[in-house]
Design a protein around this nucleic acid. Structure first.
Length: 437
DNA sequence: GTTCATGATTTAGG
DNA sequence: CCTAAATCATGAAC
C-alpha cells in the first residue's frame, strides 16, 4: 500500500504512467540534428507500440500486490459495510421500468406488417393482408403485389439481420461488462443486484438503438406501402365492361341513382371491381366512388352525358322488352342524338326514341309483363323528360309516373329515398343489371 | 408536354 | 355512417 504514492509520483501526470516518454519528448524538441530527431521519433513510436503491454503488466502486478496484501480482507469488509449503507438507500429507487410504449407501438406495427414475427408465414400473411386491404380481386394487381411482397421480404430480411447483429452486440457487451464486474468483485464489493442493475442500464442504452432500427424499418414499410398500395397513386381505370355495367345501372336508375348496399355489392361483383379498399381514413366502396363521381358529373353537365344517356336508355329498353317488334325498332342506337347540343335535347331523335320507348312501356304494361321493367325504362328517359316540358306533360298524362328525376336547378336530393319512391315494381330486380339480391 | 377523362380523397354538412 | 362538392393525381390520347 505504501508503494502507491511512490508509483504515482514517479510516473508523472501527463504521460499516462510512462516515465521515459516525457524525457524523450523533451530531448527530441531540444535536439537540432534531424537524424537524431528521427531516431527519437522512432523510439517514441516503439514505446507507444508497447505501451499497452507495459501498462497491462503493471496493472496486473499492482492488482496482485493488492490482493495479496495482508490488510486486504479487513479493508474489503469495511468497504462492504459502507457499500451496504449507501446501496440500501439507492435500492428501490428505480426497479422494473414499464415497457416503452413507443417501442411497443413499433413492435405491434412491425408485427402487423409481417416484418417481425414468424419468418416465412409472417410474410405471406402480410401479403395476404395487404391483398385483402386493397380488396384483392387479384387479376388487376397481382403483379404489383408480388413486387410488393418481394420488397417487403427484402425489408424483413434486412431487419432481421440487423436485429440479430444488434442482439449479438448487446449480449457480447453485457457479458463483457458482467465479466469485468465479476472480476472486480474480488477487490471491491459488488452485489449481484448491482450487476443486474448495470445490465439493465446497458439494455436500456441498447434499446434506443433497437428503437432506431425499428423506427427506420417502419418508415421503410410505410414508404413501400404508400408506393405500392396507395390506390390513389395507382389509379387504374375500370375496364370497359365494368363501366358499361355501372352506366347501365346508373341510367336505368336515373331518378334515384343511389344503389343500396346490396346493389353495390352486386355491381362490384359483376364488374370485377373490388368492393372496398383501405384508405387512410376509412373503407369505402369503389362503386360508391363511381356513383358519387357519376352523379356529380352528370348533374354538372347533363348535356355532355346526353348521348351516353340515350345510348343506355335505348339499350335498357331493348333488354327490357326481350321480344317485341317495337323493341327492335327502338333498339337501333344508330342515331343516338349525334346532333344534340349540350344545352337542349335534340328533339327529333330523342323524340323518336322516347316515343318508341313510351309505346314500349305501354305495351309491356298493358300486356302485363314484368312491371319492374317499367320503372327502369322510365328512369332511362328521365333526363329527357325533365328538360322537355312537353314530353313531361305527355308522360304525366299517362298517369303512371311523376317526373321526379333530376331537375335543372337542384338534383336528386328532392327525390324520395329509394325505399319510398320505388313503386312495388322496383323490388325484385328491375332489369338484368339490377339482378336479384 | 398538354389536355381531357376518371378514380380517389378531402372537406363540409346531415 | 351517408352524401355533394371540390380537389387531387393518374392514365391515356393527342
Amino acid at each position: 500500500m505504501d508503494e502507491q504514492p511512490r508509483l504515482m509520483h514517479s510516473h508523472g501526470v501527463g504521460m499516462a504512467g510512462h516515465p521515459g516518454l516525457a524525457q524523450h519528448m523533451q530531448d527530441g524538441t531540444a535536439g537540432t540534428d534531424g537524424e537524431g530527431r528521427k531516431q527519437d521519433i522512432g523510439d517514441i513510436l516503439q514505446q507507444i507500440m508497447t505501451i499497452t503491454d507495459q501498462s497491462l503488466d503493471e496493472a496486473q502486478a499492482r492488482k496482485h500486490a493488492l490482493n495479496c496484501h495482508r490488510m486486504k480482507p479487513a479493508l474489503f469488509n469495511v468497504l462492504c459495510e459502507i457499500k451496504e449503507k449507501t446501496v440500501l438507500s439507492i435500492r428501490g429507487a428505480q426497479e422494473e421500468e414499464p415497457p416503452d410504449p413507443q417501442l411497443m407501438r413499433l413492435d405491434n406495427m412491425l408485427l402487423a406488417e409481417g416484418v417481425a414475427g414468424p419468418e416465412k408465414g409472417g410474410g405471406s400473411a402480410a401479403a395476404a393482408a395487404a391483398a385483402a386491404a386493397t380488396g384483392g380481386v387479384g387479376a388487376d394487381n397481382s403483379a404489383e403485389h408480388s413486387d410488393y411482397r418481394a420488397k417487403l421480404s427484402q425489408i424483413r430480411q434486412i431487419y432481421h439481420t440487423e436485429l440479430e447483429k444488434y442482439e449479438q452486440a448487446c449480449n457480447e457487451f453485457t457479458t463483457h461488462v458482467m465479466n469485468l464486474l465479476r472480476e472486480q468483485s474480488r477487490t471491491r464489493p459488488i452485489s449481484p443486484k448491482e450487476i443486474e442493475r448495470m445490465v439493465s442500464i446497458i439494455h436500456r442504452k441498447f434499446s434506443s438503438i433497437q428503437m432506431q432500427l425499428k423506427q427506420s424499418t417502419c418508415e421503410a414499410v410505410m414508404i413501400l406501402r404508400s408506393r405500392f398500395l396507395d390506390a390513389r397513386r395507382k389509379r387504374r381505370n375500370f375496364n370497359k365492361q365494368a363501366t358499361e355495367i355501372l352506366n347501365e345501372y346508373f341510367y336505368s336508375h336515373l331518378s334515384n341513382p343511389y344503389p343500396s348496399e346490396e346493389a353495390k355489392e352486386e355491381l362490384a361483383k359483376k364488374c370485377g371491381i373490388t368492393v372496398s379498399q383501405v384508405t387512410r381514413r376509412k373503407q369505402r366502396s369503389k362503386v360508391s366512388n363511381w356513383f358519387g363521381n357519376k352523379r356529380i358529373r352528370y348533374k354538372k353537365n347533363i348535356g355532355k352525358f346526353q348521348e351516353e344517356a340515350n345510348m343506355y336508355a335505348a339499350r335498357t329498353a331493348v333488354n327490357a322488352t326481350s321480344v317485341s317488334a317495337h323493341g327492335s325498332q327502338a333498339n337501333s342506337p344508330s342515331t343516338p342524338n349525334s346532333a344534340g347540343s349540350a344545352g337542349s335535347f335534340n328533339m327529333s331523335n330523342s323524340g323518336d326514341l322516347f316515343m318508341s320507348v313510351q309505346s314500349l312501356n305501354g305495351d309491356s304494361y298493358q300486356g302485363g309483363q314484368v312491371g319492374a321493367n317499367i320503372q327502369s325504362q322510365v328512369d332511362t328517359l328521365r333526363h329527357v323528360i325533365s328538360q322537355t316540358g312537353g314530353y313531361s306533360d305527355s308522360l304525366a298524362a299517362s298517369q303512371m309516373y311523376s317526373p321526379q328525376g333530376i331537375n335543372t336547378n337542384g338534383g336528386w336530393q328532392d327525390a324520395p329515398t329509394p325505399s319510398s319512391v320505388t313503386s312495388p315494381t322496383e323490388g325484385p330486380g328491375s332489369v338484368h343489371s339490377d339482378t336479384s339480391n
